[in-house]
């Protein structure tokens, strides 16, 4: 392997490989071509995180493409983690976009199935799912390590991506979740970002199983954290977001904080979580998804004690 034993040479890979506790952020592209709006959002994250996930038509709502937004981010000196879902593209478009974003400086990507379009703002659309997320992971690995397209033809200048995947420890059937994680790692995932964690006991069980199965030795697991802005947001997520596990006790805690103080209580809970993850065996970092709350990331990072971010050459 060239590049000092690095698979992609991305900042995120270097930080993780050097044994630092990684801290990644997230930025949803705008619902339009408003580049200034995009820049304003990701500028909050500059220097505060190791890489920024750029979502791909998240919740099946059409936005500026994750490819374009990732490229803009890279050109502005912030490292993107390009998200790609299987819902909207077939294998030709996926491979083409992987080559495209790589050529524009993208070095990390997160391979996802994608929310069903039924949730989104174009439920009439045809879905693709030519390949699934595990096959996408394997495809990116093949492109990177073998320098070949899915059909075994050679790639002229293979894309060297640091390959990410998602894991939802809270979806059902619970017993199978760690095996699905194992499948993703077997397929080639270098790092994992989990769904937002609120049920800490369940996550502790999950990561313990992952450690026992040796999975945390094979891939870096970043625990997903989304600070709650209010008790109402918590209730909404508990009820409306598929595969989300929000304990009643957390909702009560937010309610108990009183009017005007719920957001601060949500941030406090997130910081408590990050503190615990720093010490938790098998957890290599945190993925902070501050949804439409990018401007709060510097404060959360500061208070969670993850600043300054390490510089690894």
């Amino acid at each position: 392997m060239s590049n000092n034993g690095l698979k992609s040479g991305s900042n995120l890979e270097k930080v993780l490989k050097a044994g630092h506790f990684a801290f990644t952020g997230e930025c949803g592209p705008p619902k339009g071509a408003n580049v200034e709006h995009l820049k304003e959002k990701f500028e909050h994250l500059r220097g505060k995180v190791d890489a920024v996930n750029v979502t791909d038509n998240q919740t099946a709502v059409v936005r500026m493409s994750s490819a374009a937004a990732s490229a803009i981010m890279a050109a502005n000196g912030i490292e993107p983690n390009f998200q790609m879902v299987c819902r909207d593209r077939n294998r030709l478009a996926m491979m083409a976009d992987i080559l495209g974003v790589y050529s524009l400086g993208v070095r990390n990507m997160l391979c996802l199935s994608g929310d069903h379009q039924k949730f989104g703002n174009h439920p009439q659309s045809k879905n693709v799912f030519d390949i699934d997320s595990i096959q996408l992971i394997a495809m990116v690995k093949k492109m990177r390590d073998e320098g070949k397209f899915l059909n075994d033809e050679d790639i002229d200048e293979p894309p060297k991506m640091f390959i990410g995947a998602a894991a939802n420890p809270f979806a059902d059937p619970y017993e199978f979740r760690v095996y699905r994680l194992a499948n993703k790692i077997d397929a080639g995932a270098d790092f994992i970002q989990t769904q937002c964690i609120y049920n800490m006991p369940r996550f502790r069980d999950f990561i313990k199983m992952a450690v026992e199965m040796g999975l945390t030795e094979k891939a870096y697991i970043l625990a997903g954290v989304t600070p709650m802005k209010s008790a109402r947001m918590a209730q909404y997520m508990a009820k409306m977001v598929p595969g989300m596990d929000v304990p009643e006790a957390l909702i009560e805690r937010l309610k108990g904080a009183g009017k005007g103080k719920q957001a601060e209580e949500g941030i406090k809970f997130a910081i408590e979580q990050i503190d615990e993850f720093k010490e938790m065996e098998g957890v290599a970092g945190v993925h902070l998804m501050a949804i439409e709350w990018e401007h709060k990331v510097p404060e959360i990072a500061e208070r969670a004690g993850v600043l300054p971010r390490p510089q690894v050459d």
Binding site: D115, K118, F119, D132, D172, P242
Partner: peptide, 21 residues
């Protein structure tokens, strides 16, 4: 499977039901 996944279930599976309904 609503997404025709060959490797499931996706993260939207809850209580034996699909995320779409």
């Amino acid at each position: 499977c609503s997404k025709s996944l060959q490797h499931g279930p996706c993260g939207g599976s809850a209580d034996g039901k699909c995320e779409i309904a």
